[in-house]
Amino acid sequence: MSDLRDLYQEVILDHGKNPRNFHRIEGADRQAVGHNPLCGDKLTIFLQLEGDVVKEVSFQGEGCAISTASASMMTQILAGKTIQEAEKLFQLFHEMLTGDPSVEGDAEGLGKLVVFAGVRQFPVRVKCATLPWHTIHSALQNKDGAVTTE
């Protein structure tokens, strides 16, 4: 059960059950679709920019607790960040879950997102947590087409 609590932390369960910013933004500047064919998860990210600052992010779709919570917390943390800061967070988040475990992650830079550190012990679930981030990365890059984890 302790391992499970590492993965399913209260804050993750809360965001999984009651996702924040869970709606579409009509006339969003950018949007991107992320798809994990392994589990059928699919989400759409909506992005509103003001210059190079992320004004608002929202999402819609269906997913597991991990991917839903990851998307929900991402939408909160990115509001007000510059595109560059957002990309930096994507990089830090990705490193925390997939990088060399002996290298200490940038806990300060990640802020609340460190709750996802436990996902690392569940390799098949890493893609659930990173899917929303890959998707927003694609939206920030303004790339066309859907993002897929496979």
């Binding site: 993965l7 399913y8 392994l38 589990c39 059928g40 597991c64 607790a65």
Partner: peptide, 23 residues
Amino acid sequence: DGIHPHDIGTILDKEGIAIRTGH
């Protein structure tokens, strides 16, 4: 209701139970 099959599968795996989740 309210619990994604993938989460069910991960928790069962912790108990040594192998089921398949997905489409």
